[in-house]
Nucleic acid binder design. Structure first.
Lengths: 305, 305
DNA sequence: ATATGCAATAAGTAAATATTATTTTCGTCA
DNA sequence: TGACGAAAATAATATTTACTTATTGCATAT
C-alpha cells in the first residue's frame, strides 16, 4: 500500500529533478531517495523518471502521478494537523437523560454554563420518565442521568447528590392559608389536594418528608391526580384545591397566580441526583462534564438559580 | 508520516469494532492490528478506541479520524488504479518540429492517421525554418523533426528517409510550355524564374537534381526570390514567370491556376527526413510515433497522400 | 584527457512489522 | 460463586523494510 512519505520524496524529487538536492531537502541520503523512487517504480510497474545521462526528467506516468501524490500528501498533512489540534481540547457529544422537572428547570441553566466553559461539546438531553432515564444510563445509551430518585438496581452507575429542588405547598391566591402565609402540619388534613401520581419524584419526596411527622400523604384528601406539575399549578389557580409542586414551577408558571404557603417546621426538599457510568471508560468531554457538575456550587435550598 | 495501510487497518477496526475480525478481513494476525492501532494512538498522542471490557468503541478523536482516513485511503486507491490503468497504454505529449512544406502538406495527414491509432497522445507541431527545427531536436526541445535536409552536425539525432515530396515545374496556364505538356531540360534557360531563397529545401533539391544535367540553377534567369511556395504559385499564376514548387502546392493552391510541365528525363524529388534523438531515452508515445512513421507505407514518388 | 557531479549499486545496521505463543481481562453459563 | 470462553494485550522472535556509508559508473565540462 502507498506510503505518504514515499510519495512526498517523489514529489520533492519531481520538483528539484535532482535526487541529491531532494535528499538534502528531505534530510536523508541520496541513495535513500533512489531507493524510494525505485520502489515506487516497481510498485507501479512503470518508470517515473527518465535518466538521460546527468539530466533527470519526469516520464508521462510521473507527470500523471505528481498532482495525485500532491493531493494525498496534503490530505495526510490535514489529518496530522487536525489530530494535533485535538490535543487537550475537550469536544465530543454527551447524552444526558433526565426526568421532567430537572429537564425543564435545572438542565437549561446548567448546560448554558457548561457550554460557556466547553463550547465544543454538544449535549443532547433526553427527557423521559425517571425509571427510563436511569435505565438508559445503565444500558450505556446515555452518558449521564439527572433524576430525583437514584435507583440502586444498576451496578454500573454512580449517583451523587447534585442539588436540592424545594417542593412547596401552593394554594389559590384567595385561599385562607394564603392570607395567613403559613400553616401547621396538621392543617393539611383540612384541604383537598391535587397531587402527582404515586411513583413520581414529587410525590415520593413529599411522602418521605412527612415521614417524620404525624401526617401521612396517603391520608390527605386527594381530589385529583395529574401527570405534571404545571397542570397542578393551573388546577390550584382555578381554586380546585391545594397541592405540592417544585418551587420552580410555583414561581414560574404559577407566579402571581398561586400563593406559596409555608408549613411550619417542615422544609420539603427534593434531592436531584446526577448519575454516570462507573464501568465504561469516559471521554474527556464526559470527565469535563462530571467535573463541572460535581464542583459547581448550587444552593441546597432556595430558589433554583 | 502517515501510512495508508495503517489507516486502512484503523478503518476496518473502526467498522467492525473487533480487532480479531478486522485482522481476518485484512489477512493479518490480531496482535498486528493491536500494534497498528497502538502505533496510531502513540503517533496522535490520543486514544482512538475505548476498551470497555469486551466491547470496543470509538473515542471522539477516533470519530474525527474516520472520515479523514477514509478520504486518504480512497485517494490512495485512486492513485493505484490510475497508475494501473496506465499500464501498456500509450499516452503523453509529443513535440514535433518541422519546416514549412512538411508542416503544411505532410504532417496534417500523418498526424490524423497517428491520432487514429493513439488517441491519447497529444502532438504539438512547431513550424520553423529547417535549421531551427533541427536545432531544437538536437537540444531536446522537440522529440522529432521533419525536414528535407538532415544536418549531420548533431550527433544526438538520427534521421531516416521518410518520404518523397515531388517538386514540379509550374507555368501560367496560357504559357507555351503548358500547351506542350513537357519540355527538354535545356529549354529551362529560356524562361524567367521565380524561386525560393538559396538555403531553402526546395532550392537545394532542384539544384541537386540538376547536378547530373547540363543545366545549373544558378544560371537560370531568376526574376524574383520569394520566401514561400504559395507566393511563387501566385506569381506564376499572374504570368510573371515559371517556378519550381512542391507538387502539393501545385495541386493545392495552384490547382486550375497554374500548369504543371514535365521536364523530359528529370524527376525532381525532395526527400523528407524524419529525425529523432538517439541518446535521450524515449517514452512509449515517442516509440509509438517512431514505429508509426517508419513502418507507414508512403509512395516515394507521386502525389502526397 | 581529466576532473567533477550525480545516480546507481553494494553491504551493513537499525528500525519497523509481522508472526506465534502466552497472559490478562471480562462476560457468561452452570 | 467458579469455571469456561472470547477477545485484546503482551512477550518473544523472525522477517522485512528503511536508512546509512562507501563505492562504482556515466556523462558532462574544463
Amino acid at each position: 500500500m502507498l506510503d505518504a512519505h514515499q510519495l512526498n520524496v517523489f514529489l520533492i524529487a519531481a520538483e528539484t529533478l535532482n535526487f541529491t538536492q531532494a535528499a538534502q531537502r528531505m534530510n536523508m541520503s541520496q541513495p535513500s531517495v533512489s531507493q524510494h523512487i525505485q520502489a515506487l517504480e516497481r510498485h507501479f510497474n512503470t518508470s517515473l523518471f527518465l535518466r538521460a545521462g546527468r539530466t533527470l526528467q519526469l516520464t508521462d506516468a510521473g507527470l500523471v502521478l505528481v498532482p495525485m501524490a500532491r493531493d494525498l500528501v496534503s490530505q495526510s498533512i490535514l489529518i496530522e494537523e487536525t489530530m494535533e489540534s485535538l490535543q487537550g481540547e475537550i469536544f465530543g457529544h454527551l447524552m444526558v437523560g433526565c426526568s421532567t422537572t430537572p429537564g425543564k428547570y435545572v438542565l437549561p441553566h446548567l448546560l448554558a454554563q457548561f457550554h460557556n466553559e466547553h463550547p465544543k461539546v454538544r449535549v443532547t438531553c433526553l427527557v423521559s420518565p425517571q425509571a427510563q432515564a436511569i435505565n438508559m444510563l445503565c444500558e450505556g445509551k446515555t452518558h449521564f442521568a439527572l433524576a430525583s430518585f437514584a435507583h440502586k438496581s444498576c451496578m454500573d452507575a454512580e449517583f451523587v447528590d447534585f442539588m436540592c429542588d424545594p417542593v412547596v405547598l401552593i394554594t389559590p391566591l384567595n385561599h385562607p392559608w394564603a392570607q395567613k402565609g403559613s400553616i401547621e402540619i396538621e392543617e393539611l388534613y383540612d384541604e383537598n389536594f391535587i397531587l402527582r401520581e404515586e411513583d413520581s419524584g414529587t410525590y415520593r419526596t413529599v411522602r418521605d418528608a412527612l415521614r417524620n411527622t404525624s401526617v401521612r400523604i396517603e391520608r390527605l384528601k386527594t381530589l385529583l391526580t395529574l401527570g405534571n406539575s404545571e397542570a397542578i399549578a393551573l388546577s390550584v389557580q382555578e381554586g380546585l384545591g391545594v397541592g405540592f409542586v417544585s418551587q420552580a414551577v410555583a414561581t414560574g408558571v404559577g407566579r402571581d397566580h398561586v400563593a406559596i404557603v409555608k408549613i411550619n417546621g417542615l422544609d420539603i426538599c427534593r434531592e436531584i441526583y446526577i448519575g454516570r457510568h462507573t464501568r465504561l471508560p469516559s471521554t474527556k468531554a464526559q470527565n469535563a462534564f462530571w467535573d463541572f457538575v460535581t464542583s459547581i456550587d448550587i444552593p441546597k435550598m432556595g430558589t433554583i438559580f
